[in-house]
Design a protein around this nucleic acid. Structure first.
Lengths: 211, 211
DNA sequence: GCAAAAGTGTACCAAATGTTACAAACCGGA
DNA sequence: TCCGGTTTGTAACATTTGGTACACTTTTGC
């Protein structure tokens, strides 16, 4: 973060790289392709799609400039792309081979730090996601989610997602989520007014997580 | 990987570090502590424990020499240890501050590569674990697990885990796992003889994953 | 201000899994 | 060989969640 053109030019001096352009809907990489280069989205955006077992594809995520593509797969044991990548629009990608990229990392500490931060944050995100998925019941997921959102201080929280989005995030159906929420209300643990939720009994909410 | 004493000495030249020793059962770090140093287990082993919401602690993992401690938390957005770390036995730790460690990474490409590989592999592992957890039914988990184990060629696989261990890995109860397996047998998709499993119909097994 | 769309609360039944219990098959050592 | 512990197979019942449908409320766009 925070590199100007002059600094960039200095860093890229003596580094081999190439810029590739793709048109809208053009396939950038195929799932299973070997991942030997760092690919950076310079302009435009691409989407990662995973081939469903049925053959139909589902979108995993959008990657917009200036983010890297599959940063966790350039290194590590598995060097094959897990997804198909397709251009959302006209897009240009900066491609740098692994050895060249290592040179850059060794040359500039800011880039090294940024890259380490990026993949570390991803590992942390995945880790917290797994912790979340390990809660068995919907009640537990709600309790964990609300307590996290409220922190130590607050008793009233505003949901940042619609019920349907929240249900998808939880990996459950919307009616099931509404039902579980309704039970918590009936038991006097929370009060709800559409997206506004007041936590009445944090102690009991915590108890839910004991399993 | 693959650094001898002379090489190490050369790398560590001019680097500030310290070696700390802990006795058995001594607490090495507290959950919530800020993580500003790389900590490397030189000898002995430590365990990571998470404080349950009940107050009781559960063991997360053992870390033995020569592995690093919480490598994903030295960088990234969240720089606080997620777990308590306690010495399993007399243990010595090599501690290097983040700036000093960055110096090392810039100085030696092998260490840089090793470190990048380590974090990346972890992210990949977590990612595949999430994919696995996202299968809804036990049948799907079994199918995915067996197909992965068998690969393209084999039809007969030997389970490396007991049914109880497998159930825990799947995050389900043992009887439920046995029941689901029994149904697959009844439907003629597999044959089982305790831990030995023959996949009779790979096509149908694949179809299960379509959901 | 009205109509359409989106979001929410609730009910019903079906499907999947957890819980508990017990019997049968295996395995190791005396 | 026999015995005890472990692993595996199975059953009955309770609980949780998914699937679907529908009424109601709120927001959005015209």
């Amino acid at each position: 973060m925070g590199l100007n053109a002059v600094q960039l030019e200095k860093i890229m001096d003596g580094i081999h790289f190439q810029v590739r352009r793709f048109d809208k809907n053009e396939q950038v990489v195929y799932a299973g392709d070997s991942c030997t280069e760092l690919m950076l989205v310079l302009s435009g955006s691409v989407k990662g799609e995973m081939a469903d077992y049925t053959g139909k594809t589902i979108k995993i995520e959008d990657i917009e400039a200036p983010r890297p593509l599959a940063a966790a797969f350039l290194f590590g044991k598995n060097n094959r792309f897990p997804v198909n990548v397709i251009a959302n629009e006209a897009v240009s990608l900066l491609c740098i081979s692994r050895p060249e990229f290592l040179k850059i990392l060794q040359k500039d500490q800011r880039i090294l730090t940024n890259y380490l931060n990026s993949i570390s944050s991803r590992a942390q995100f995945l880790s917290s996601r797994i912790k979340f998925l390990s809660f068995k019941t919907i009640r537990q997921k709600i309790a964990h989610y609300l307590l996290e959102l409220a922190g130590d201080r607050l008793a009233v929280v505003e949901l940042p997602l619609s019920q349907a989005q929240l249900a998808e995030f939880f990996g459950v159906t919307r009616p099931a989520l509404a039902r579980a929420m309704g039970e918590l209300v009936a038991e006097g643990l929370v009060q709800t007014q559409r997206r506004t939720i007041r936590i009445l009994d944090k102690q009991k909410m915590n108890d839910l997580l004991k399993g």
